[in-house]
Design a binder for these strands. Structure first.
Lengths: 110, 110
DNA sequence: TGTGATATATAAGAATCCTATATGTAAGGG
DNA sequence: CCCTTACATATAGGATTCTTATATATCACA
């Protein structure tokens, strides 16, 4: 698993990305991120929830309380139009970072 | 240029990488990083100097005051053996992050 | 009854970046 | 001779985003 100093800033991209495939609640997002990256990228819920509030305030996602069949209440988030628009430039920025680090350090050949 | 939220944690790798080609002082490191990444990755000196102190305390680099021919005093840093050893796992970790984000979001196809 | 999975929430602290500011030397133009 | 730009290091104060620890509550299963 990747250390906190290095994965800083990835939560935003990770959340937007998993939400791209459909609405999800926080607990499930954490599992998807971990599963889809085969355990390489992992977030504690204590990191995810505050991030979800911030992203909702920015208007990128919107959460609605729902009650599942088993009676559990959970907050289901979905991408807003603004959030979808945010994804492309965010991906581009990350791609540029990769390119820059590669030029500096040949990180891909490690 | 890449925003601060995304490039967090890259300074360490950037510094170790530019020092791999030979000793440098802080001001010159900043220029190298910017030049080698064609302006994509940029650090202010106010961010670099404290990072250099931290890395020296960890034993990854060592700085020596020298007086250049023009009379300017500057602190020349070079990689220690421990710093060299640190580079490989650090690169590997970054490469893993790239792979993980790619699996999540297809960042390279942005 | 108790344990583990589900589900959300907050608090306190650490780390790393930012802008702004300070200090001082050297080189070059007006 | 003065002013600006480049060189060179340093610190202060603030923002953001992680961490661990803690709290609450429901459900399924043994």
């Amino acid at each position: 698993m990747i250390g906190p100093g290095i994965k800083r800033g990835t939560a935003e991209l990770a959340i937007l990305s998993v939400l791209e495939d459909g609405p999800l609640h926080g607990y499930e997002m954490a599992r998807r991120i971990e599963r889809q990256t085969k355990g390489t990228l992992r977030f504690t819920l204590a990191a995810l929830y505050p991030m979800l509030y911030r992203m909702e305030q920015r208007g990128w996602i919107r959460g609605n309380w729902e009650t599942a069949g088993n009676g559990r209440r959970r907050r289901c988030y979905r991408l807003t139009r603004a959030g979808k628009k945010e994804l492309s430039p965010l991906r581009r920025e990350w791609a540029e970072l990769f390119r820059a680090l590669h030029q500096l350090t040949k990180v891909a050949h490690a």
